[in-house]
Design a protein around this nucleic acid. Structure first.
Length: 226
DNA sequence: CCCTGATTCGC
DNA sequence: GCGAATCAGG
């Protein structure tokens, strides 16, 4: 791998986007090991690791068969990494908490499904021109085979100025129509006029065509003047 | 099995 | 410095 300034910058960018190492590797056409290794050497912030910490060997390693030539080290390093990890997690959690809560606030229990606060990671054959938006993996599901779009959290008042459709005058909590309905929030939650769009959603989506167009936007390389 | 990220260590 | 091999948890 030729680690030019550009590729390193790309790595840093993708890394900061919260993409998985494997995903970064795919986009850079390298292995995840290369990604991790480089990131490690670059001193990039550790990602939330599935591994809690490196087992301490001075105690009971838990039957860790020393397949390696030398026993795995990393007592201090692992501890530090773990600490940094938690620290990072806290920060990330704090950052993502707000949007999540906001979304939750606008999603009543009556909604049949939760809003798709999910950023589909680029699938394997993803074009290089697009890539998923930064979303910490902790709050997203594994990638779906969806078109590369990014969810946009509904604005607090996407249509505050809009008149309330007459079909909602009679019942706010229970839309007139049954079955799936667009759950795009309209108005202020908790206020009398608040309601959900209620139109027929696109199949497989929580929003109607109109609001899906707003909710899902194509991702463009933000470094490219986006 | 698949996935994940971290570490080690030969090169 | 690099990254495959390996580890280890979900």
């Amino acid at each position: 791998m030729d680690w030019t300034d550009d590729t390193i910058a790309r790595l840093r960018d993708l890394w900061s986007q919260g993409l998985s190492t494997a995903e970064i590797g795919r986009q850079l056409s390298i292995t995840k090991n290369a990604v991790v290794g480089k990131a490690h050497r670059l001193g990039l912030p550790p990602r939330p690791s599935p591994i809690r910490n490196r087992p301490v060997k001075d105690g009971v390693p838990g039957e860790a068969p020393p397949r390696r030539k030398s026993t795995p080290r990393g007592g201090k390093a692992a501890a530090a990494a773990a600490a940094a990890n938690e620290d990072l997690l806290q920060s990330v959690a704090a950052v993502v908490a707000a949007p999540a809560e906001a979304a939750a606030a606008t999603t009543p229990a009556s909604a049949e499904k939760v809003a798709p606060a999910v950023a589909p990671a680029a699938s394997k054959p993803a074009p290089a021109a697009v890539r998923p938006v930064a979303v910490p993996r902790a709050v997203v599901e594994p990638a779906r085979k969806e078109p590369v779009v990014a969810p946009v959290a509904p604005a607090p008042r996407p249509a505050a100025a809009r008149p309330v459709p007459s079909r909602f005058q009679e019942g706010v909590d229970r839309p007139v129509r049954r079955g799936p309905s667009c759950c795009w929030p309209i108005g202020d939650p908790g206020t009398p006029g608040f309601h959900f769009c209620g139109a027929r959603p696109l199949s497989g989506k929580p929003y109607c065509a109109e609001h899906a167009a707003i909710a899902y936007v194509k991702i463009r390389d933000r470094r490219d003047g986006g």
